[in-house]
Amino acid sequence: MADRLTENDVTPKHIYLRRREFMAGGAAMLGALTLGRDALATPADWMQQKIGAGFDTTMATDERITPFEDASTYNNYFEFGTGKSDPVNRSGDFRTDPWSVEIGGHCRNPGTYALEDIVQPKDLEERIYRLRCVEAWSMVIPWLGFPLASLIERMEPTSDAKYVRFETLYDPDQYPNQRAWFPAMDYPYVEGLRMDEAMHPLTLMAVGMYGEALPNQNGAPMRLVVPWKYGFKSIKAIVKIEFVSEQPANSWAVMQPREYGFYANVNPNVDHPRWSQATERRLPSTGLQANRIPTRMFNGYEEVAHLYEGMDLTRHRYI
């Protein structure tokens, strides 16, 4: 009960909107003035305090961790542009503080929560996960976050909540591709999980990586990380979480239903219509090596297999 949010924890909008607005903007400007790839806006003080309070590494790896400079400069984040270096080059001014998340739908504690009230004290843990992109490349990234399950429990979803729907910020002032003549997709970006997937202990809400707050280009201030699914499921810069009874229409499945589905579990046996998913390029390609390695079922996280018992994962509706 102690970690449940109540109505009293909800910061009135007029207060959190005032907080550190100018500091965040100024820091982002300074960052952007230095080299493009170093344009990491300073995160909120409270975030740095929470991270500074310490955390345990609850999932380690014997694989080589992708260097930070690769993981923070090679990103798919279409709101900033479709090029891999667009996110790092164009996100320097992105404002992550103040940040609030609207949580609603079939739950007992709906409301608009300030991010600092969502991230509970001593809640953070480090988990090193493989990240497998649907484009057949992968990285190994130490995330900093908390299980999505703990947030969901605090919201007390009702029995009508069968799925969780997530939404990325819609703000054309801050996202160049959202104000482009021909946006790369329909915005805001939407993703979703089945309730049992969302409650699975591997499913992480990340607010940091490599021991620090998330860089803007990696989805600051808060993003999802679902390590057994293709990367596009791990939605960035979340502003809305909704408990729904119908399967959410996630953005890529809406745009290219022949190529992307709702489940998007990493599966070496089901090729993308245009390329093989049997292998992946583990990045970075140090020394100009292709670094091709076999792709593993559920990206190697076999412990989730029971969630899909009885489902034929080669059938289109379950891809």
Binding site: D70, T73, S85, R281, S285, L288
Partner: peptide, 9 residues
């Protein structure tokens, strides 16, 4: 700019 994924770039 090509270090991470020289093949793709």
């Amino acid at each position: 700019v090509i270090s991470t994924d020289p093949g793709a770039v």
